[in-house]
């Protein structure tokens, strides 16, 4: 984590282009049929539990088994690989890009993700804090809980199989929690953001600065 954050540069970047560009990849091999075109507005999954799928982006068919894939985030389809329409694609092929308008809170989180140590989800599953960590969070609040390598910090739950998740990042305080109990997290997505105690003031500075700068825009 760098102490030399170039605030002006970062903020200028977000001012001139306050969007995230989210690439959408083929989830599996199969024949792809697009359901949107360049410029289409798409919605993120909705409903109280995120159970209503996002706008259908493409259908992918393998072995006569069609699967509709929805948008993971809201925005505008800014680029689409129209040349792939009706073609067989490999899993992981980039199919389109969604331009997602960022809110202030998302910009703060994006900047923090550049300075925090992000501990990723080892598998697509649901996660909850280990009982010891949860009781410390309940007593002191999440930003007072320090984790160090080797600590059992989370439990990963998939089909009633619970797997302890051992922390393997730098020692520090849990600053951000990116998962909600009961909501699935994709493999590789961050679960928690950790920063060392001596860098907490820097994090606060980021938040204060972004809030102030953004309000003045």
């Amino acid at each position: 984590m760098s102490k030399d954050l170039h605030f002006d540069e970062i903020l200028s970047k977000y001012r001139s282009d306050p969007y995230d560009y989210v690439d959408i990849f083929a989830t599996q091999t199969g024949v792809v049929e697009f359901q949107v075109e360049k410029g289409s507005a798409v919605d993120a999954p909705g409903g109280e539990w995120g159970h209503i799928p996002g706008t259908a982006l493409y259908q992918i068919t393998r072995e006569r088994n069609p699967k509709m894939i929805g948008a993971p985030i809201n925005g505008i389809v800014s680029e689409i690989r129209a040349d792939l329409e009706g073609s067989f694609v490999e899993s992981g092929e980039r199919l389109m890009t969604i331009r997602h308008p960022l809110k202030k809170k998302e910009i703060i989180e994006n900047i923090l993700k550049e300075v925090l140590y992000l501990f990723p989800a080892p598998e697509k599953a649901k996660y909850f804090f280990a009982m010891d960590i949860q009781s410390r969070i309940d007593k002191k609040g999440v930003r007072e809980v320090i984790v160090k390598p080797g600590d059992e910090i989370l439990t990963m739950s998939l089909m009633k199989r619970d797997t302890p998740v051992i922390y393997a990042g730098e020692e520090g305080v849990i600053h951000s929690v990116y998962f909600k109990p009961g909501v699935s997290v994709e493999q590789g997505e961050p679960l928690i953001g950790v920063c060392s105690m001596d860098k907490v003031p820097l994090i606060q500075k980021v938040i204060t600065r972004v809030k102030a700068e953004w309000d003045n825009m």
Binding site: G47, H51, I52, P53, A125, L158, M159, K160, G182, S184
Partner: peptide, 10 residues
């Protein structure tokens, strides 16, 4: 509300 979902944990 008529929507459908598939759950793998819970």
């Amino acid at each position: 509300d008529g929507s459908t979902t598939i759950e793998y944990s819970g």
